[in-house]
């Protein structure tokens, strides 16, 4: 029915138009403005240039990009490794306890993200409680620095993104048919083999989702290294903000954003391809 179709268009129009103007266009602008020169007032100059991209060859950047990839990768690995046993326990618990535990995972989430990061600053502070405890037990010396290094950043990244991993993992494990595991054990598989050959492949989709849910925001981390890291633990996000606010060089931060955008698109694309290959193979 042509009228029906027209109606569909009309209903889609407001959100389509809004997202095209305020999401699609600005995102494309990242890639365009990276080729514009900056003007001294902090705005954009006339004409086109490749200078910004050449400046990214500056020895600072490769190390920052490498750190961003490395920390995000460690964080993702840690979240999956901790998330699987955690979600396994929840999924196998009695239903009432399941709901209570899930709520306990989500509640810290309802507190503001900044406040959670800030709370860690107090815990890791040189005058803070953890430091005093560690010194008293003899693990740390009085001049050990818990704050302003890569470890602090990684720790709080795991703290922040772990629930993102737990939710899809829990959903997958909850649907997993545990009779399969018993069958594998009955057929003589050891516990480790049964886990590796039956359980992990069974929750593969959940693991894939969890990886993306952690890896993508981790790559874009900005607040955590900004508050808990030092100059030697900066990530791509910090540089984007510095170029945008401290130096007010918008083309430069656009080029860095374009780079981050590509870093994010790559795992997403790989995820889609993997899924397509699987479903293609099954058909």
């Amino acid at each position: 029915m042509p009228g029906q179709r027209m109606k569909g268009w009309m209903i889609s129009l407001p959100s389509m138009a809004w997202l095209t103007v305020f999401f699609l266009l600005p995102t494309l602008m990242i890639f365009i403005i990276a080729f514009k020169p900056a003007n001294p007032l902090g705005g954009l100059g006339e004409g086109w240039t490749l200078r910004t991209w050449l400046e990214l060859g500056n020895p600072n950047y490769p190390s920052i990009i490498w750190r961003t990839l490395r920390l995000s990768f460690y964080c993702t690995a840690a979240c999956i490794l901790l998330g699987i046993p955690f979600s396994y326990y929840i999924a196998r618990a009695p239903e009432r306890r399941q709901r209570a535990l899930l709520l306990l995972v989500i509640i810290p989430f309802w507190t503001n993200f900044l406040i959670r990061v800030f709370a860690w600053k107090a815990v890791l502070h040189p005058e803070g409680a953890l430091k005093h405890m560690l010194v008293a037990v003899g693990i740390a010396s009085p001049d050990t620095m818990l704050l302003y290094n890569e470890w602090a950043v990684l720790l709080v990244m795991v703290y922040t993104y772990l629930p993102f991993a737990i939710m899809p993992l829990y959903a997958a494990i909850e649907k997993f048919d545990f009779a399969l595991l018993d069958a594998a054990l009955d057929l003589g598989a050891g516990r480790a083999t049964a886990m590796r050959r039956v359980f992990l492949p069974g929750i593969r989709r959940g693991i894939q989702t969890a990886v993306l849910m952690v890896l993508i925001p981790a790559l874009g981390s900005y607040v955590i290294p900004d508050i808990l890291g030092g100059p030697s633990s900066e990530m791509l996000g910090n540089k984007i903000a510095q170029r945008a606010f401290a130096d007010r060089n918008l083309p430069h931060s656009a080029a860095l954003s374009a780079l981050l955008c590509l870093c994010v698109m790559l795992p997403m694309l790989m995820g889609t391809l993997l899924r397509r290959k699987r479903t293609g193979g099954a058909a």
Binding site: L19, F23, P217, Y222, A254, L260
Partner: peptide, 30 residues
């Protein structure tokens, strides 16, 4: 048409915040 619409709705959910913030800043300045 709705597949494109769905893509537009879905993308902001997955892109890191900082990219959305930066792109909107560029847009408003431009």
């Amino acid at each position: 048409f709705q597949k494109i619409h769905h893509g537009l709705i879905y993308m902001p959910l997955v892109l890191p915040d900082i990219l959305m913030g930066m792109s909107l800043l560029l847009f408003f300045v431009a």
